[in-house]
């Protein structure tokens, strides 16, 4: 859907998007990163399971939430890439909360 225009002298970091390590420009949001990685959707809804992707890019719509470094419901448009960051598509309401062993 999107691509990044060529620019010189930009610092990069490596992040892991759905298990795949990629190099991206420092200072980019997670949303900009996944959109320019041809990621077509970033979450499924908790209600109907339908696919969603970033919509407003300015932090107001909460449609771009993803699982970032294991934490669900992180706004991809308001989170900035960091070295080694793990970025995953969020399925529904997110991860299991019961797993608390006695």
């Amino acid at each position: 859907m999107f691509k990044q225009l060529p620019a010189t002298d930009l610092e990069t970091v490596r992040v892991i998007v759905n298990g795949q390590s990629i190099s991206v420009t420092k200072g980019m949001t997670v949303a900009a990163t996944v959109l320019s990685q041809q990621q077509k959707y970033t979450r499924t809804t908790a209600i109907s399971g339908s696919k969603r992707a970033p919509f407003c890019m300015m932090g107001v719509c909460y449609d771009c939430v993803m699982v970032i470094n294991g934490k669900a419901n992180q706004r991809a448009c308001a989170t900035y890439v960091e070295e080694g960051m793990q970025i995953e598509i969020q399925q529904g309401a997110g991860s299991d909360l019961v797993g608390n062993e006695l």
């Binding site: 859907m1 999107f2 691509k3 990044q4 225009l5 620019a7 420009t25 200072g27 980019m28 949001t29 900009a32 959109l35 320019s36 077509k40 959707y41 970033t42 339908s50 696919k51 969603r52 992707a53 970033p54 919509f55 407003c56 890019m57 300015m58 449609d63 448009c77």
Partner: peptide, 25 residues
């Protein structure tokens, strides 16, 4: 309007300004 691939124009501008990211197709 909820389909992936539908975004607000402001979102397009923000992608452009903040990351030089523009539509490629």
């Amino acid at each position: 309007w909820t389909l992936p691939g539908v975004m607000q124009a402001g979102a397009g501008q923000i992608l452009f300004k903040s990351a030089g990211v523009v539509p490629d197709n």
